[in-house]
Design a protein around this nucleic acid. Sequence first.
DNA 1: AAAATCTTTTCAAGTACTTGACAAACGACT
DNA 2: AGTCGTTTGTCAAGTACTTGAAAAGATTTT
Lengths: 342, 342
Amino acid sequence: MISMKEIGRICGIAESTVSKALNGRPGIKAETRNRVIEVAAKYGYQPNAMVECMQTGRSRSIGIACNNFQDPFTGLALDGVHETLHQFGYDSYVIRWDKLVEDHAELLSRFARRRVDGLLLFPTARPPEQSHIAQLHAFHNPVVLIDQLWRGGEFDYVGSDNRGGMAALVELLISQGFRKIGAVTYPGVSSGEERKQGFLDTMFKYNLPVDARSLLEIRDAREAYVEIRKLLAGDARPEALLCFNDFFATDALNAALDLGLRVPEDLAVTGFGNLPFAEKLRPHLTSVDQRIFELGERAARLLLDRIDGRETGPRRRIILPATPVIRDSSRLPLIHNRRTAL
Amino acid sequence: MISMKEIGRICGIAESTVSKALNGRPGIKAETRNRVIEVAAKYGYQPNAMVECMQTGRSRSIGIACNNFQDPFTGLALDGVHETLHQFGYDSYVIRWDKLVEDHAELLSRFARRRVDGLLLFPTARPPEQSHIAQLHAFHNPVVLIDQLWRGGEFDYVGSDNRGGMAALVELLISQGFRKIGAVTYPGVSSGEERKQGFLDTMFKYNLPVDARSLLEIRDAREAYVEIRKLLAGDARPEALLCFNDFFATDALNAALDLGLRVPEDLAVTGFGNLPFAEKLRPHLTSVDQRIFELGERAARLLLDRIDGRETGPRRRIILPATPVIRDSSRLPLIHNRRTAL
DNA sequence: AAAATCTTTTCAAGTACTTGACAAACGACT
DNA sequence: AGTCGTTTGTCAAGTACTTGAAAAGATTTT
């Protein structure tokens, strides 16, 4: 890769003159400027981003930590994040939590050595430890959390109205006549707790009992199918099962199908997140739309606003609305409608 | 972020002494060294990766271009790529083709300014233009293609045995008694052509006719469901439909279901790729396993081998085996078995 | 005490680039 | 010819760090 110094040597002028020529600064003869530009193009000159970083103290890059690249939620949000980053001329380094969650210091160290201008943190598989939070506070640059709130961590946050979205969903199901409603929860992460609360609050609001046996806590996503199937095969089977996310809902649909249950006649199933595949499922999955792409965009935007000093106030919490999308998996045919007066 | 110069000032010594102390070089009093290390730890010193790049000419980072982060194939492969990158202490910049495919020069320019040590290119949505290939050849650092071969481009390549995998699948279906076999192809990308050839060759080998009407070319993935449904609703409906990938297969399953067809009794459906969701579909989807994670690992490994000079030979083509995984979507119950003598 | 030896630290240069100060060269005017 | 302003280009410093040579300091030997 050719440098300004070499271009200067080729043109027979000082490198600082080359700098002025290429950056459109005044004080350069048009003839000299054109010649420099010509040579630069010929040899494919590209300015060295490292130098810019050393001079300005800004790398125009951010660090992203996410669980892995396979999760559709992560993928969709990352697309949103990169949409915004690209607009602002930023690039990103992505490191996976599942690879470095054990060695939090190593993760931060790598980002620090790269001199990233800020951090964007996706949900962790396990709740973050206090020592990790302390290390992040010691990190000089802005930090934005996406989708998962950290207890005790005073960071900017962009997430969904999990409680409100779930509450709205429960209300819709109740208005359709469902009464025996169960839920598959994912404790430990903030979004799981919020969705569970939205469910419980709304059931309480309408004086509907919640059978403890139909409140399923999943701690390891790999166990979801088996646990849900056990629930559906037993006496406590509800009329509707509200799942923490669309994956659990897929497992619920499959478990129901494998048990010979009809969805939604024997069991209504709902997810959360409204991931792209929800529409591809049969029956089409009812879910709560989270505007995931926008979640990514807003998180990146907030981070860049902090970095560039457009946002200087106290910690922000941006909450996007979450709206239920009713599809076949919870939509009873008229003939089956359980609607009754409340 | 504290620098060596500042540490030197704090300790009352020259920055070059700090450098020697922190890098374990000889000629430093133990007392001085310990004091430097102590101060460095106290202020959270981290070496500046930019400087290392300027001195060595290596950034220990690579550039990755992929369509988007939502595609499960991309996600799984990216996980493999990052697994290997992490082992070797490399980081990556990811830029999306779908954002910059129009402005190929801008994409390369951004990678060049960041001084990435090499490029890893995922499949493009559209076949790459010759001018793009020329620009890549002008790029001084190693380039590795993953999953998609570029006509006219002499690049390293890591992909699957698409033809062999498809041929093996067809043979298995034929041995089960299927005769009227159709295919949903994706022309334009090399993997699509190879899978199609594997299908046609094997049908020819067993003297089985291929009905042109049941050879469906999909150019835009969004049209897949509608086109497949048209095929299945018409006279040319085959006994088995071999799809280019698991997404088309999902569309085929849905189209069959929506038309009231039983799978696999009325129609067998197969995919390609064996993405994680293939097992979650009902019926479980027969697919051809591509070892996608390993594909990513090998591609990254090859790129790093080129960068670090462990691999210096001519262009390499690494082909991983592709093996059919027969599941319910193509497994006829015994009572329906169409097996006949060939 | 001076010289020799060894240890420890500093110096200078190099990586790519920007920036403001400064110096030539030029023509116009007195 | 000398002064002035303008144009055009050079110089030096600064960003963080490494490297080998040189210098300084400490210790030992003569």
